[in-house]
Design a protein around this nucleic acid. Sequence first.
DNA 1: GACTAAATAGGAATAACCCCGAATCTTAGT
DNA 2: ACTAAGATTCGGGGTTATTCCTATTTAGTC
Lengths: 209, 209
Amino acid sequence: MSIKIFLADDHRIMREGLRAMLEKKGGLEVIGEAGDGRTAVRLVKEMRPDIIIMDIGMPELNGIEATRRIIKNCPGVKIIALSIHSDKRLVSEMLKAGASGYVLKEAAFSELIDAIHTVKRGCSYISVEIQDVINKKLSKHPLYSELTDREREVLQLLAEGKSTKQIASCLDVSAKTIDSHRQQIMKKLNMHSVAQLTKYAIREGITSI
Amino acid sequence: MSIKIFLADDHRIMREGLRAMLEKKGGLEVIGEAGDGRTAVRLVKEMRPDIIIMDIGMPELNGIEATRRIIKNCPGVKIIALSIHSDKRLVSEMLKAGASGYVLKEAAFSELIDAIHTVKRGCSYISVEIQDVINKKLSKHPLYSELTDREREVLQLLAEGKSTKQIASCLDVSAKTIDSHRQQIMKKLNMHSVAQLTKYAIREGITSI
DNA sequence: GACTAAATAGGAATAACCCCGAATCTTAGT
DNA sequence: ACTAAGATTCGGGGTTATTCCTATTTAGTC
């Protein structure tokens, strides 16, 4: 029985490269892929892979949020973050969200293979470069303390330039609901413009520049 | 005689993925790689590949500067930029530096293969997505013009979270004038939300995060 | 002088914002 | 199991901001 793997990364060339390398290995099977977080959450729910290799910077729904939801939906599934960032906040948020592994894109492919087998056994795999970062557990101001899941989701779409209507249609709810969410976000953060919200979202890694 | 290819990208997993896919194709040979721009310049001088696939964001020496130096050193070598950015400034800087191709990492691998053969024949290859970006800037009435001083001034205040009224009062003109400026900015940049403008302003260094 | 772009605005339609209330649904605690 | 708190979902209704189209004045260029 081979290990079923799902790829989530917004760069198609990266997905194709990973797939090519993974499929050369025995005992692994890439059963699906997605180019954004929202699609990943949906497809994983259907396909039930063993392991997800998840990029962090993705449109629509970033890798941290996607991880949080997938872990909630599908408790057995293991997630390995594959990121270009060694930023401590992102690492700790990703692990807090439920990821079992964290590998940098500048690492060797063999490290990813190690991570896959380690995580499959139920252990967790953290790159050495990252390990140092983890030890400094600064939970002083937790990154995602203020906003709820839904609010962060709305904020990301807002920071990506979408209008209230577009967000509503994207999330399949009434525009009035999005209205309420945005109001709540602004109230919580004490901000009163899209520009400020956008900068906040960038600082917090909810969206990318 | 196969085409000799050199890979320059700071993410080793990306290099390995590209190598795996390229070597499955016939007529191509990856003869070397580098994880930073400075090393790339040095190795290319020794190895004399036909084509270099060059990432832009690299440590030590970025892809644009590396391209400039390689073209100076080795006039016959062709360079294809493989980047995550479709930013107009980066594209034009890269082409000005001497690159013959520009492909996005979110493109299909087959596009990169097309680019390799196109560039080998002496032609240049620009992704359709990039072409749009360039054409839009060039074809709109404000001919590939950057923003005016006044527009940049307005954009900065906008990206700092100020309202139209606040900006108007700040610059001592009618709010309607600021309206027009913002409209003109959006038209020139082909953006339609404050969020996008804010990100642009950050990228351009007009405001800080 | 003719032409062009920049900076300046007005009017009208559209969208965003902000207050209120309120029905479900989860979750945590006792 | 009950309760309390919070999250999520919407509607009404009014205010404010934005967008779109158009138009004038000013400044610089050829």
